[in-house]
């Protein structure tokens, strides 16, 4: 059963389209990871689902409900974190929970204290939230999202500001909630490796459009291990590879680097092959499946998104983007590298 669904959802701000006919489907019991750069439309999509942004056109369905009143009713079953944690800074943790719980008709303080303990906060702590660390605020936001035993959780960057231990705890908590309580989770995060540890379905957004919806098996199939070789002479190396491999399954990465996906020939064979051809090998290693580069390539690489919203992390990762055939110039040289040099 589909618990969250959008159909041709479109939203623009001052003439700029931020969601362009987006149709996503989240099934019951899934952990759905929403992937995309800053400005790709993730938060707008989440806002629209939660009734905070009015779409220009398209449809939203939550558990099959579509009218405004029905949607308001269904949203009572959704816990959420959007942008920065929504917290009253002049109150302590328990009062923050009370403030939201009262609005939902929940007055059982013992349940609220249990929620705080569940996310690792001290219920009796009188410290005001304004004195909390970012991690503590994030935990409190998760506790607030869990008020009223929601059936769906929508979390926008829930591990922002958490230390590694905190990230691990939140990940385990989300897995537990999903497996034990069958809570459906929609989660957006920039930490792709982290996301891949919890999500079993993905929606990739780029420039306000849904590029692809994938299940975790599809992502694994797309991301493959490879042998990475940094060579001194790329042209010579390419001719060696074409001579020795029947399947031309390789990518040219920046900085005279080759990614060889055909693992029928092991790393020692590759090293010997280049040595025999007198092609200098500067570095060679086995690389694991790289989910991040898979997602980045799905998002359209570094040039596919809105440059105004580019985030440094993606720019750094750009060097990992496999070259496409049009990145090579007529002589088989790495045109992309040349472009970078010119810049």
């Amino acid at each position: 059963m589909n618990v969250l669904e959008t159909k041709d959802l479109t939203k623009s701000y001052r003439g700029k389209v931020v969601l362009d006919n987006v149709s996503v489907t989240v099934r019951e019991g899934e952990i759905y990871g929403l992937v995309g750069r800053n400005g790709a439309g993730k938060t707008t999509l989440i806002r629209a689902l939660l009734g905070l942004a009015r779409p220009d056109s398209g449809e939203i369905a939550i558990n099959g409900a579509r009218t405004i009143q029905e949607l308001e009713e269904e949203r009572k079953k959704i816990g959420s974190i959007i942008d920065s944690p929504a917290l009253a800074l002049h109150l302590n943790a328990l009062d923050n929970l009370k403030s939201i719980a009262f609005s939902m008709g929940q007055r059982d303080v013992s349940k609220l204290k249990a929620l705080l303990e569940r996310v690792g906060l001290e219920p009796a702590d009188p410290m005001k939230v304004k004195n909390f660390s970012l991690g503590m605020k994030q935990r409190l936001a998760i506790a607030i999202a869990l008020i009223g035993d929601p059936r769906i959780l929508i979390l926008d960057e829930p591990v922002n500001g958490l230390d590694p231990a905190g990230i691990y705890e939140v990940r385990e908590l989300l897995k537990r909630l999903n497996q034990e309580d069958n809570i459906t989770i929609l989660i957006s995060s920039h930490l792709l490796s982290e996301l891949s540890k919890v999500a079993n379905s993905y929606g990739v957004l780029a420039n306000g459009k849904l590029v692809k919806e994938l299940r975790s098996e599809d992502v694994e199939a797309l991301s493959r291990p490879y042998i990475k070789v940094v060579v001194g002479d790329l042209k010579a190396a390419l001719s060696v590879v074409t001579e020795n491999y029947t399947q031309q399954d390789f990518d040219i990465l920046p900085y005279n680097t080759l990614a060889l996906y055909d693992l029928s020939k092991d790393i020692s064979f590759v090293a010997t092959m280049f040595a025999n051809a007198k092609v200098p090998v500067l570095n060679i290693c086995n690389c694991d499946a790289d989910l991040e580069s898979t997602f980045i390539s799905l998002m359209g690489g570094s040039h596919g998104a809105n440059d105004a919203h580019d985030e440094p992390v993606f720019e750094e990762l750009d060097v990992l983007r496999p070259l496409q055939s049009n990145d090579l110039n007529a002589d088989g040289e790495n045109a992309k590298k040349e472009d970078n040099d010119e810049k």
Binding site: L50, G51, R75, I78, D83, S84, A86, M104
Partner: peptide, 10 residues
């Protein structure tokens, strides 16, 4: 964000 949170919870 209290208004945001309350509206998002129906």
């Amino acid at each position: 964000g209290t208004v945001r949170l309350m509206v998002s919870r129906g």
